[in-house]
């Protein structure tokens, strides 16, 4: 699926939904729970579950990145699957919380 900044994706096998905050605008094999993610308009896989090696789950409000930060996905709905590109899992983008300033 071609993913650009602003694209919405949903998991085929759990409740996870994400928005691409940063994306190269190319075809990418973005997965959740080990299964390619869907456009929000597509139907979910009946009875599908995340594969064992991609089932740590997603957390709402966290941003997920690949190792060289070419893509950044914001989790807008949490679920049981883990996000990945191909077989490589994405990691939570660690950010230092800042004191409220406005």
């Amino acid at each position: 699926m071609e993913v650009r900044a602003g694209s919405r994706l949903k998991s085929a096998v759990c409740n996870t939904e994400v928005i691409a905050v940063k994306a190269p605008g190319e075809d990418m094999d973005i997965r959740c729970g080990g299964v390619p993610m869907l456009d929000p308009s597509e139907a979910k896989t009946e009875g599908g579950t995340p594969s064992d090696d991609a089932s740590d789950g997603t957390q709402m409000g966290k941003r997920y990145v690949d190792s060289d930060e070419t893509i950044e996905l914001l989790c807008t709905k949490p679920g049981d699957g883990s996000l990945g590109i191909g077989d490589a899992l994405l990691a939570i983008k660690e950010s230092k919380p800042l004191p409220a300033s406005d």
Binding site: A5, V21, M60, R63, L74, S95, P97, L98, A100, S101
Partner: peptide, 27 residues
């Protein structure tokens, strides 16, 4: 939208406030 959303995502933790927190905006 990209500027403001980047600013918020980069500087504010989603649901980072405790339930009893309130901010007074006078600007």
């Amino acid at each position: 939208h990209s500027h403001l959303v980047s600013y918020i995502l980069g500087s504010v933790e989603f649901m980072g406030a405790d339930e009893d927190e309130a901010t007074l905006v006078s600007v």
